[in-house]
Amino acid sequence: MTIGDRVKRARKHAGLNQRDLAKAIGITQPSLSELERGESRSSAYLIQIATVCGIDATWLATGQGEMLNRPRADEIELHETEVVDGDEPLRSDEIELPCFYEVEFSAGDGSTQVVENHGHTMRFPLSKLAKRGVSPENAACATASGTSMEPTIADGSPIAIDKGTRYIIDGKIYALDHGGMLRIKRLYKMPLGRVRLVSDNSDEYPEEIHSLMGPDAPKIIGRVFWWEVFD
């Protein structure tokens, strides 16, 4: 099986056409078509293709191993993480990620806004970013608040966000700035520029449908590619 064959198989596994996959990874549809036909052997976008399609990057590049050998980005994975409050030096294999927070406006009327890096950072292993094809400059973190995504993401769990992935992959989890509220939901595309916001705790938090247009539309901060799990 050639690289082109594997790219085509990965794309079909993800349920994407050439146009959508090409847009997601930042190339033209003819360029992707050439790669699938074997007319181009460029490997510059293989990590992005693997990330978008949810398959193993090593398999895509070399054919070794299994297509779904690595954990999917929406599966639960337990790690050791640490919110950095002190001055302890970073290890060589760590990075400090800026954090998103929901804070009150200075006017004191109860309104909130979502801001990034409000004086706190989180340590995160560089190897975890590389495994998921996330560029360090696109990575950030936040803390889940509330029970809407339980049992998948518990109240108070730290999460990591890829700000470079703002296109919607149906069923994946995203961080949103919605009217100044930091929200975490599974997203599903709908016609006419609308989107479904789905909570895993659907008994208490019914599904919502919103337009992606206009000043009141939810703004996608990025895809949630990791979260901590508490016992």
Rank of each mutant, 00 (worst) to 15 (best):
G86M: 08
S42G: 04
D109R: 06
V114E: 05
F105V: 05
S42K: 11
G133Q: 03
G54Q: 13
L126V: 02
F105T: 08
T62E: 14
L60Y: 01
F100I: 00
V84C: 04
T121G: 09
E66D: 15
I76H: 06
S42M: 14
D74F: 09
R91D: 13
Q64G: 08
T62P: 03
A107Q: 09
S111V: 02
I49H: 02
A73E: 13
R70D: 14
V115N: 07
T58N: 14
M67A: 14
L68W: 15
H118G: 09
S106V: 07
G119E: 11
H79N: 09
I47M: 11
A130H: 11
R70Y: 15
I76W: 09
L60M: 13
P125F: 07
G110F: 02
T62R: 10
E75M: 08
E66Y: 14
G133Y: 03
S40Q: 12
F124C: 03
H120W: 09
L60D: 03
T112S: 09
Y45F: 09
N117C: 08
E104C: 04
S40L: 14
Y45H: 14
M67F: 06
R91E: 14
G63D: 14
C53M: 10
G133F: 06
D74P: 00
V115D: 07
I76S: 08
S106K: 11
L97I: 01
D87K: 09
D85T: 00
L126W: 06
S92V: 05
G110E: 05
D85E: 09
V83K: 07
R41M: 10
G133P: 02
V114M: 06
N69G: 15
E75H: 08
A50N: 02
R41D: 15
M67I: 02
E104M: 03
I49C: 00
V84P: 00
T58C: 05
E82Y: 08
V114P: 00
D56T: 01
D87Y: 02
E66R: 07
Y101V: 00
R123Y: 11
R70T: 15
S92Q: 10
P125W: 06
A107K: 13
H118S: 13
D85C: 01
D87E: 13
G63M: 09
M122P: 02
A107P: 00
S127Y: 12
I49T: 00
E104R: 07
R72T: 12
E75I: 01
A61S: 15
F105E: 12
K131D: 15
A130L: 08
E39Q: 12
W59F: 03
R123W: 08
T51M: 05
Y45N: 05
Q64S: 13
A61C: 10
T51S: 12
K131L: 15
S42V: 04
A130P: 01
T112M: 03
L46D: 00
I49K: 01
I49D: 00
I55V: 15
I47Q: 08
V52F: 07
H79I: 13
I76P: 02
P98G: 06
T121K: 08
L129T: 02
E39I: 07
K131R: 13
L78C: 11
Y101R: 03
K128L: 13
E88C: 05
S40Y: 11
L126T: 03
E75V: 01
L90P: 03
T51K: 04
D87S: 12
K128A: 11
R132P: 01
R72F: 15
E39D: 11
Y45K: 09
